[in-house]
Design a protein around this nucleic acid. Structure first.
Lengths: 130, 130
DNA sequence: TCCAGTGTATTAATCAGTTAATACACATTC
DNA sequence: GAATGTGTATTAACTGATTAATACACTGGA
């Protein structure tokens, strides 16, 4: 478990996003246990309350569930899981579109640059994340 | 002059971005006068100090220049202007790539969704902005 | 039993951004 | 020359979001 934080977005938002990505890619499986609030806080060097806030959001979104006082687990609801993936993709695309449209760049030019950048640095990146 | 603000980013940042877009598209021409700090604040319903901060950033970035106490003007440096366009595009693409890559979606699928969304709502949008 | 680890809740402190209130020098216009 | 409208600077207050500190209740196992 490792997350690289940016300074722009709130930490708890970034934590939620990280879990969503892990769920979307299947890296975290349905029913799988996730670290306790305190342990996550230790691992990521963040405050336990920040971890708690992230988990609370995920719980309310149905991404994880908690029984008694045992560690939370990833939801087993496949509908939720697949919609997480869709949501992440759509959100990224919509942000991108609203960023790029005001500049009035032809779509094909955008796609060209996009493909180029998408394949960039893929080797170093593979070392880091997988 | 009209800008729709989101709540995520600081207002002064959004103002700067708006001007960059206008410069990049040629909607604001080299040497063209822009509203005074106080007038911009009036138009956008923001605090004069926020307008001042935005202009200060733009001045430091060489996007605008100010002589004496007459209203600031768009730079006449074509290098800066074209690099603004490049910068906006590259930044958007890089943000998008780093948002989409962790989800491990095939690039062609992404491009498909992107093209679809890019052409979406183009009619209503045209009414509003042009 | 008791204790360590869990989830949960409450309150305080911190921080960035924004707004606000003034002030000053300058120049253009009336 | 006075007035108005520029740009610029300084300082303080406010506000909402975020993070931090602390406490409480529960439970499963040693």
């Amino acid at each position: 478990m490792k997350v690289t934080f940016n300074k722009r977005d709130p930490v708890y938002v970034q934590v939620v996003r990280h879990f969503k990505e892990q769920i979307a890619t299947g890296n975290l499986e349905p029913g799988q246990e996730i670290p306790s609030r305190r342990e996550l806080a230790n691992q990521l060097k963040i405050n336990p309350n920040t971890a708690q806030r992230a988990y609370k959001e995920m719980e309310e979104a149905g991404l994880i569930f908690t029984q008694g006082n045992s560690p939370s687990k990833i939801t087993r609801d496949e509908n939720i899981i697949s919609s997480v993936r869709e949501e992440l993709i759509l959100e990224a695309v919509e942000d991108f579109v609203s960023a790029i449209r005001p500049i009035k760049v032809p779509i094909e030019e955008v796609v060209g640059i996009l493909k180029e950048k998408y394949n960039d640095d893929v080797f170093e990146r593979r070392d880091k994340n997988d």
